[in-house]
Design a protein around this nucleic acid. Structure first.
Lengths: 98, 98
DNA sequence: TTGATAGGCAAGTTGCCACTTGCCTATCGT
DNA sequence: ACGATAGGCAAGTGGCAACTTGCCTATCAA
């Protein structure tokens, strides 16, 4: 469960995809490809991006909806809120006020 | 920078080590090894744990201090606080109260 | 000083992951 | 109907990362 989220976040390309979906949610595969090439200059195939999106979807970070021949990708940030608090439970490092 | 943190968190064994250091900070290598074996039943060598600790230290999640022949490992949670907010900047998904 | 404890260094192996390549299906415009 | 656009499936490849193995150094107790 949390394992999928951490593995999804481990790849820098996937984090860039999350950035682009944060900027504008509901993009298609080709739009994301275009943005990654234009804004970040990284040259990867369409299949690579498609596989990255599959990983993000398996982690629950992206949901998809199909309309005609288009498939839109929406961002889901909920899984991100509950994974770091696991080690952040302590209120303060030193000098906790009782 | 953030890349090291995400890569460090990608491994489940390293996340367990962070759990143990959250439970009690300032443990030695052998103590961590013992806990991983006893509480989680995973059989890995001392070298494996040592290498995991090196990755965590490179990511800034663990700091070490030497005393005699002992080397204590302390938890550092600061890098965890600034990595997820990158996509969590939006206050709410839908129905934000104005 | 000797043995035991705590840890480090370096080479080797194995398995997984990111990426490519080639071909296929489905929807839309004209 | 036909071509163009949007996307999917599956096998293959290269590189890295996790782990092991073997040996070495340093500190402490007796």
């Amino acid at each position: 469960m949390a394992d999928d989220v951490f593995k999804a976040l481990a790849d820098p390309t996937r984090r860039l995809i999350l950035d682009e979906l944060t900027d504008r949610s509901g993009q298609t595969l080709f739009e994301i490809c275009g943005r990654l090439v234009a804004k970040h200059g990284l040259g990867l195939s369409r299949q690579a991006v498609s596989q990255h999106l599959a990983v993000l979807e398996a982690a629950g970070l992206v949901s998809t909806r199909r309309e005609g021949r288009y498939k839109f990708h929406d961002l889901h940030t909920e899984p991100l809120e509950h994974i770091v608090t696991r080690w952040l439970a302590q209120p303060d490092q030193e000098g906790r006020t009782p």
